[in-house]
Design a protein around this nucleic acid. Sequence first.
DNA 1: ATCGGCTCGCGCAA
DNA 2: TGCGCGAAGCCGAT
Length: 472
Amino acid sequence: MQDRVRQLNPASFPASARYVLYWAQMNRRLESNHALAYACQLSRERGLPVLFYEGLTCSYPHASDRFHTFLLEGVPETARRLHHHGIGYVFHLRRRHSDHDNALYELARDASAVVADDYPTFVARRYNARVPAKLNIPYFAVDASCIVPMSRIDKREYAAYTIRPKIRKLLPQYLVAPPGIKPGKRFNDPVPAFHTSVRASGIASLVASCEIDHSVRPSTAFHGGRVEAERRLEHFLHSNLRRYASGRNEPSARATSNLSPYLHFGHIASLEVALAAKEYAQEHKLIAGEFLEELIVRRELAFNFARFTEDPETLDALPEWALRTLRQHDPDRREPCYATEQMETAATHDALWNATQNELLLRGKIHGYYRMYWGKKIIEWSATHHDALRFMIAMHDRYALDGRDPNTYTNILWCFGLHDRPWAERPVFGQIRYMSLEGMKRKTGVDAYLREIAELQRTGQESQTVQGELPL
DNA sequence: ATCGGCTCGCGCAA
DNA sequence: TGCGCGAAGCCGAT
């Protein structure tokens, strides 16, 4: 556990306190959560109960019905499970910009310590840089997101091939069930007035009452929450794991896990998914290697990148050769060259690209393989490389349920050469790897994907099954 | 249908 | 210091 815990301020424990406070910034689950387990460990050592705090504000960029709905859909189940374990729960919904935004500090006043997520992007990164110094109680950040703790890799890795042997070597030590949730005492205090009770039937009206962007509708495909995450994992294991290796780069086969939104919102842990996939593969004589490579090696490479990068949202983070070649080709003429509105509304000349953009607009996620194509074409059609990067990040921030994640930035910057190698020089891209529509047509079922997305656009409904897949 | 070249630099072996 | 090889490819030659 010590590999996962960092105290981010010099404060010591106060003489008296009412609880240990767990601040669920990213990991909103009870299961397979080293951070919550650490809060429970402290609570046992100090004979205190645990209070689980989760906040949702209207004020972060691109707050919308899509993100609010997904997050709120997880809240009733979280409340139920916490109650069952005797852990207190405060959920604070800041609906208006004028509402008070002091919940964490108010709760910390009666706390013995704060335990938060060690997470290298988005709000958690900013909070962990700012908040600990303002508290006079210990503030611990716990790595509950990676299987091999980020602290075990001591430098920024160059590519998958350099981190892979390190992870393989450490994996036996960490691919094990984490400590359980046993608080030192049951939480019995009344919850503060700013707690918001959420019922599944009330989510739509709650979302409507928030000062957020109501034009970004909830995803057609993904509902949030622990129960939904577990259901998708089961579905993946039974229906898709055996064809993952052959079908993962065939979007119309729908052979991937679709767990990235749940991993990002912390409804499920990659550790649980990995253990479940390994066990299922053993029982059913399958090979889970390719899936585990994606889930562990490449995901943790992304966390390693974000952790060791000053600002993962800029091109500065690229390797020297990529920066050099991009700089050289930035003045190249783009043909066509689209304004961002034209791309955002999926109105380019390229039907496949438009479909990937529509998938993002409607589902809130693009299939991993087509997302590379999506990004490469944005580089090809944007006035500058800087514009291309800004647009890709903005699209994920605004529409993607798996956006703002280390994986997001790594996948986007991969399109600019990160973790990749140079290739034959060409206009606009320089030595950055190029991808073509012809390649996509040759290697994937573009027509089937176009039909699927067109159907989704027409009906607003997901068609439930494809060949080889069991009903969800 | 398949193959090699494209091109840089990391990390290990020596 | 030398050498093998790498997150998803392209392209032209055969």
